[in-house]
Nucleic acid binder design. Structure first.
Length: 470
RNA sequence: GGCGACGUAGCCAAGUGGUUUAAGGCAGAGGUCUGCAAAACCUCCAUUCGCCGGUUCGAAUCCGGCCGUCGCCUCCA
């Protein structure tokens, strides 16, 4: 079975076939950097990271380009409000976001593009559009002539009249058509600007992605991704610009992730109902966010709430529990064989579900099935090759989804390295108490360690311990 | 108003015509193990898929209506 994906362009499941054999070129719309990113942005980054990782798992060489919108009205407004330099402001939040991506275990992009470093390409592309009759100048701004684009609206399945309906009536009432959108905006006094054939100004929002794709990936790319709130107008306009410019299809597959919901409504900067990535990571592991997102489907809205995160954390603990050091001595026999079969089945199921438009929820379920098989085998004293293979498979498949499987971080004060020997010493002492049947004391010791975040477990081969975040 | 998505157990959620009289995770109940706990394992936990009709030998899955939720139509991942 081969990979099939839901293409927003045409709204159907299609088998995935990249332009160049074995190579995938993908572009994902990144954030506008005027404030700290929230976990909705993180969801998008995580979803496309998963898609990229899975494509690589399938053996594709992936060129992954993502951008930062670092010139924009909101940035200018925010800079004015806070009396900052807009470029410094954008730079600050760009770096913050890059840090967050690392914290979230998002693989580094092949290239991070920015509007500010793309200016010559943007200007020449706008110029070309003008030459070809797709754009016109008006008072120092340049607009895209929507009427010239015969299949405008094909992505969002919107007719031009619908697109016009809600258009904000604003400054340039002289636009040829209300649906025409800005490729270049003339600078107002005090605004940052670049020199252009049309005077001082800055690019419109949509043209940046057109130029970045064209100049960093080529006229036609395999996958274009982003949140489904970008379908209209942003991606529709990108298609209009790019295809008018090159005469080639812009992107073969359009993939859109659903929105993160906080108490029933979309999380967004403008509504102010958000949890920033930084806030989330103060209390939770990056894996927890992936679990919340991937227990659902990337195209559907994801519910976010404290109890949902808590449930995800407990599921992850179960996953990690299956990776405990295996000390069983049975390496052959029916139990070992059952484990081997469970491992093969998990691999096959995982792959089949991921091939089905990245059904991460079902894919994770097949990993959980393997974890249960591992635990059962551990109880049956299975160890050796098959156990190693089973545990490695859990790690490998979880890694395809971008999970780190790291437990709660070690507290800083343990830097001295004294904590572990001390814990071992306490366990040793407690074992002696237990042998002496002084259970009350032994239990008290266990409880107190538990309060300190050290959880003891008495097994048939002695006591083990692990950190357990309160 | 226009375009689109969705409504599955206490919660999150997969499943889109028979192999499912509905995966998986969390929570809950009982049991095994244990000095006790924890972890793990076993069993149970929706005769039912928003509601009402229809198509079909057969529907959570297809069609129609209704109710409800959400997204886009303005900046938005």
């Amino acid at each position: 079975m081969a990979l099939r994906v839901f293409n927003s362009l045409g709204r159907e499941i299609q088998s995935f076939q990249p332009l160049a054999e074995g190579c995938v070129r993908m572009y994902v719309c990144g954030p506008t950097v005027y404030a700290d990113a929230h976990i909705g942005h993180a969801m998008s980054a995580i979803v496309f990271d998963m898609i990229r990782r899975y494509l690589e798992y399938l053996g594709y060489e992936v060129t992954y380009v993502t951008n930062f919108t670092d010139v924009d009205d909101k940035i200018i407004d925010r800079a004015r409000e806070t009396e900052q330099d807009p470029f410094e402001l954008a730079e600050h939040y760009t770096n913050r976001y890059l840090e967050h991506l690392r914290d979230l275990n998002v693989k580094e992009a092949t290239e991070y593009t920015r509007v500010t470093t793309e200016m010559p390409n943007i200007i020449s592309d706008i110029h070309e559009l003008g030459e070809a009759g797709y754009a016109y100048e008006l008072n120092g701004s340049v607009y895209f002539r929507v009427l010239r684009d015969e299949d405008y609206g094909k992505l969002s399945q919107r007719r031009l009249e619908d697109a016009r309906a809600g258009t904000r009536v604003e400054e340039d009432l002289d636009k040829e058509d209300p649906a025409d959108f800005a490729l270049w905006k003339a600078a107002q006094p005090g605004e940052p600007y670049w020199e252009s054939p049309w005077g001082h100004g800055r690019p419109g929002w949509h043209i940046e992605c057109t130029s970045m794709c064209r100049h960093h990936l080529g006229d036609t790319i395999d996958i274009h991704g982003g949140g489904n709130d970008l379908v209209f107008p942003h991606h529709e306009n990108e298609i209009a610009q790019s295809e008018s410019l090159t005469g080639q299809p812009f992107a073969n597959y359009w993939l859109h992730n659903g929105m993160m919901q906080l108490s029933g409504t979309k999380m967004s900067k403008s509504l102010g109902n958000l949890i920033t990535i930084a806030e989330f990571l103060e209390d939770h592991s990056p894996d927890a966010l992936r679990m919340v997102v991937f227990q659902g489907h990337y195209r559907k809205p994801v519910q976010f709430a404290d109890d949902i995160v808590a449930a995800a954390e407990r599921g992850l603990r179960r996953m990690r529990q299956g990776l405990r050091f295996a000390q069983g001595r049975t390496t052959v026999g029916p139990e070992a064989d059952a484990l081997r079969q469970a491992t093969e089945r998990a691999r096959a199921d995982f792959r089949a579900h991921m091939d089905d438009d990245f059904n991460t929820s079902a894919a994770i379920a097949s990993i959980f099935d393997l974890v249960r098989a591992i635990n059962t085998a551990q109880a049956a004293d299975v160890g050796g090759l098959f156990m190693d293979a089973a545990q490695d498979t859990v790690r490998e498949l979880m890694d395809v989804l971008g999970f780190t499987l790291e437990g709660p971080a070690e507290p800083e004060e343990e830097a001295s390295g004294l904590a572990e020997p001390l814990i071992e010493l306490l366990i040793e002492t407690r074992s002696e108490l237990r042998v002496a049947r002084k259970f009350e004391l032994a239990d008290r010791l266990r409880d107190r360690l538990g309060e300190l975040g050290i959880q003891l477990e008495d097994g048939p081969r002695g006591t083990t311990w692990q950190r357990n975040r309160a």
